[in-house]
């Protein structure tokens, strides 16, 4: 199997010039994401999971170490890495179809050409009939499906998901997780999935990296022993429970450490 993404000894230090203080957001992080693999980063806020995503997305550069996409160094954002944010960040002045077609428009594709493509993706994310609606007229789950369609139209090498369902209510979140699993079966793309929800990490991922804070780093890697295709019913299976127990153990140990430090 070929690796889509590789981080090699990545360290990220944020400097606060006003307070002359440095924050080590990430320390010595190395891992790879293989073709068609879903990797989940699981950890509390402040563990640097979003920093990892921002580095792979090309929004920020590592202070030390290397980030590669298909062997090439990452220097800036690109359409081959599709980013889905927690706060969807749709363009609220554009309709659903125009949001989805944004990447084609900036490439200079004519309206006559991009509309059928956009409609195809509207259909794929189950929003037929909402082509001409505006994001403000949609529910949270629908908006998130638009923002996923907006990156899928680029046929990306990898999806970078930054807690995409964290802002949704519990029922919608479960529906969206199932929906994304189904979508994954169709597209079979690589995925980096950031979450602080243990169930979500196990359900979505092939491998989970459990992260710790101060400095942000990977504490342990866990393989998820669940087969594909995944389904909601697995949430209560013995294999799921066993993995969850392992995750919670590691998280509890790390949290206790922060707790004792008065963090």
């Amino acid at each position: 199997m070929t690796e889509k993404v590789r981080l090699e000894r990545v360290t990220k230090i944020f400097e606060d010039a006003r307070q002359a203080r440095e924050t080590v957001a990430l320390k010595d992080v190395s891992f790879g994401i293989e073709d068609r693999e879903t990797v989940a980063l699981l950890g509390p806020s402040g563990c640097g999971k979003t920093t990892i995503l921002n580095i792979i997305a090309g929004f920020i550069l590592p202070t030390e170490g290397e980030a590669l996409i298909e062997g090439r160094p990452i220097t800036k954002p690109g359409p081959e890495r599709g980013v889905v944010f927690q706060e969807h960040f749709l363009f609220h002045w554009l309709t659903v179809e125009d949001n989805i077609a944004f990447a084609l428009k900036v490439r200079g594709v004519s309206r006559r050409e991009f509309l059928p493509r956009a409609h195809e993706f509207v259909k794929r994310v189950g929003l037929t009939g909402f082509e001409r609606h505006y994001p403000d007229e949609l529910s949270g789950g629908m908006r998130q499906r638009v923002s996923i369609a907006r990156v899928l139209i680029n046929n990306p090498e990898i999806l970078l998901m930054d807690e995409p369902f964290a802002a949704l209510d519990a029922q919608t979140r479960l529906l969206m997780q199932e929906w994304l699993l189904k979508l994954w079966e169709e597209h079979q793309m690589s995925m980096l999935f950031i979450t602080h929800d243990v169930d979500e990490a196990i359900l979505m991922a092939d491998r989970i990296f459990i992260m710790g804070v101060q400095p942000g780093r990977i504490i342990q890697e866990l393989k998820v022993p669940l087969p594909r295709p995944r389904a909601r019913t697995m949430l209560t299976s013995p294999a799921f429970m066993e993995t969850k127990a392992g995750c919670l153990d590691l998280i509890a140990k790390e949290s206790a450490k922060i707790f004792e430090q008065g963090g």
């Binding site: 090309g58 954002p77 690109g78 960040f89 944004f102 907006r150 680029n154």
Partner: peptide, 12 residues
Amino acid sequence: GAIRAARSLGAT
């Protein structure tokens, strides 16, 4: 975030 979204979709 909107600017980042646009840039990662390929906007100059």
